[in-house]
Nucleic acid binder design. Structure first.
Length: 423
RNA sequence: GGAGAAAUGGCAGAGUGGUCGAAUGCACCAGUCUUGAAAACUGGCGAGGGUCACACCUCCGGGGGUUCGAAUCCCUCUUUCUCCGCCA
């Protein structure tokens, strides 16, 4: 969420930049500023009332000690009114705070100035392209056919055990996926990211901290008996490591990576585009996450993009990078680069990574701060990205590396798989 | 799952109704002494809101209550520890 003080000080700028998301936030922002004004007025009144009763209480205390019970009782009577005032002011204050928060939760992050305007994913700006699109043999298959042909992923079995969107990986398919996970984690730790293993279920406070709650609970599986949520991404537990944290400036930057399964309800989407591995209820992902000094976060974002590029270059997959336009930008992000791998057999681009700078948007909600050189507490910037989402990378490999003899294993993965061909 | 104990500043640890935002020790910062360091001594040292700066308000695991007044009493939740049970 944005800070009210920031809205107040940069109102016009915020409104015009939010317009890139095709939203007119002027009303909400004005309301928020007004509510904050009211809130502070009430707060001051409340503080003064409390100060008064504190003073009285102290006097009563010393009168009792001095044995002047009658005088004390006179003062006691006086406090009754103050108590009532306090109570009603508190109620008023709560109403204002709730109304203010409700508004602030609704306002998305302010896009960076370099975010292109646009409405849909068609308006995203391609900034980079690498890798050759392979010429496949006649009769090349989409990955769900390949999965069946070589018996490496069983979608029907998943249907039986759980339901649609929960595939079962078998034999070399399972091994290839595990190889990719290990390979990604190795690349990330080599680049200075510390590997973490985090819980796969989170509590309400964590879901709130990263913004899935209160509005997007439909995205997550909810374990009602214990009021826990299955994570939709490692971002949730990994970012909440830093909830309510005050860091030293010298602790920054923090770079962590972790592998987790991800669970998404993704209700109501079926069809060709979600076939096979394209869209699942459970999938694996390796995530990278950084906590940065505000002065350094965009440099860090570039570094993350370069890092993911390095991995895709090594895998020799054809990919492109898109700078997301305002209309396609995630709610919490200020700037996002998407990576897409070209799936030759499906003849389409598949999103495999999304790298974002959230600036202070998450940190504000998380209360993630550092003590700056002036000794003041300042919000950190948070960033994260996938490196990478497994199913679509797997799909890309199966489809782009297929030959008539079988599916070749990318060279960098052979040490991890122990085989060089799926046939 | 059952029984019991506990949760206080960076850490340790006092505090059971009123000058307690909280003793003391360690750690940390500054200074004195010293060629330098250590030791010793002196001073400072939690967080959030608010203010130009003060004042002032809030915070002793979370939430609620009793009271003129709560770290202290009551209710509730969470977590930790000990013992028993179960278990990869």
């Amino acid at each position: 969420m944005l800070q009210v003080a920031f809205l107040r000080d940069h109102k016009q700028d915020v409104i015009s930049r939010l317009a890139k998301r095709n939203i007119d936030a002027a009303d909400d922002i004005n309301k928020a500023i007004d509510l904050d004004e009211d809130r502070r007025t009430i707060q001051t009144k409340l503080d003064n009332t409390k100060a008064e009763s504190n003073t009285l209480s102290k006097e009563i205390g010393s009168l009792f000690k001095a044995g002047q019970v009658q005088k004390a009782n006179v003062l006691k009577a006086k406090t009754t009114e103050l108590k009532e005032t306090t109570k009603s002011l508190e109620q008023e204050l709560n109403l204002k705070v709730e109304a203010l928060n409700e508004l602030l939760y609704k306002i998305p992050n302010v896009p960076n100035t370099i975010v292109p305007s646009g409405n849909t994913d068609e308006d995203n700006e391609e900034t980079f392209r690498e890798g050759e699109i392979p010429q496949l043999y006649d009769g090349a298959l989409p990955h769900w056919e390949l999965a069946k042909k070589y018996d490496i992923i069983d979608f029907e079995l998943g249907n039986k055990i759980t339901g649609a969107g929960f595939p079962v990986y078998k034999g070399k398919g399972a091994r290839l996926q595990r190889a990719l996970i290990t390979y990604f984690l190795d690349k990330n730790t080599e680049a200075g990211y510390t590997e973490y293993q985090v819980p796969h279920l989170v509590n309400e406070a964590s879901g709130f901290g990263t913004g899935q709650l209160p509005d997007k609970e439909g995205q997550m599986y909810h374990v009602t008996a214990d009021n826990l949520y299955l994570i939709p991404t490692a971002e949730v537990p990994a970012t909440n490591i830093f909830r309510d944290t005050l860091l030293n400036e010298s602790d920054l930057p923090i770079s962590i990576t972790g592998y987790t399964p991800c669970f998404r309800r993704e209700a109501g989407s079926y069809g060709a585009h979600v076939r096979g591995l394209n869209r699942l209820h459970q999938f694996d992902k390796v995530e990278i996450l950084r906590v940065e000094h505000p002065d350094n976060s965009y440099k860090a974002l570039d570094g993350m993009v370069e890092h993911v590029k390095g991995i895709l270059n090594e895998l020799k997959l054809p990919y492109r990078i898109l700078k997301l336009c305002g209309g396609d930008l995630g709610f919490t992000s200020a700037l996002t680069y998407d990576f897409e791998v070209f799936s030759t057999a499906q003849d389409r681009w598949l999103e495999i990574s999304s790298v974002s700078n959230f600036e202070t948007f998450q940190a504000n909600r998380l209360k993630l701060r550092f003590k700056n050189s002036e000794g003041k507490n300042e919000l950190c910037h948070t960033l994260n990205g996938s490196s990478l989402a497994l199913p679509r990378v797997l799909a890309g490999i199966l489809e782009n590396y297929q030959t008539e003899e079988g599916i070749k294993v990318p060279e960098v993965l052979i040490p991890y798989t122990g085989f060089d061909m799926i046939s």
